[in-house]
């Protein structure tokens, strides 16, 4: 099938972002994941009694909470990156600034996710033993 397409046709099919529908799908799939994860997130916050340090450490150190929080934060930043990218594409017109901002938000998103991962792993493995 693709053999019958000229290179020009193939490039046109990918659109101005040159990545086809990958961005669109990424935004939707992360949205579908975030829909239930957001409810869990609000429930998790609401269930923290008093929210003192020991309670929050213990809660985040529990494997299921840790897993869901990591999934939530990772998906959140992936979704946020894709969304901010579109906002920058729409409103930031100088090409150099546009590309700089896109690289910066990607770095920021990766750093945020990695920081969260390290923090949660620390809470799982190093936090005070639970009774």
């Amino acid at each position: 099938m693709t053999a019958f397409r000229t290179p020009l046709k193939v490039v046109r099919g990918l659109g101005s972002a040159r990545e086809g529908t990958g961005h669109w799908w990424g935004q939707r799939v992360t949205a579908m994941a975030l829909a239930p994860l957001s409810i869990w997130f609000l429930w998790f916050l609401a269930m923290l009694p008093g929210a003192d340090h020991a309670t929050v450490s213990a809660a985040l150190g529990q494997p299921l909470s840790a897993l869901l929080m990591l999934a939530f934060v990772f998906t959140l930043f992936y979704h946020a990156y894709l969304g901010l990218q579109v906002v920058i594409e729409d409103y930031v017109h100088p090409r150099a600034l546009e590309i700089t901002l896109m690289v910066l938000i990607r770095f920021a998103a990766v750093l945020a996710v990695l920081s969260t991962a390290i923090a949660i792993l620390r809470l799982i493995f190093i936090a005070a033993p639970r009774t």
């Binding site: 340090h53 450490s57 985040l60 929080m69 934060v73 969304g83 945020a112 920081s115 969260t116 923090a119």
Partner: peptide, 21 residues
């Protein structure tokens, strides 16, 4: 959506602060 990006950063602050002590 843009505002939630700031909220997401605040969430990371909270999680990292919890792990720091």
């Amino acid at each position: 959506g843009v505002a939630l990006c700031a909220g997401a950063v605040a969430l990371v602050w909270g999680i990292v602060a919890t792990a720091l002590g």
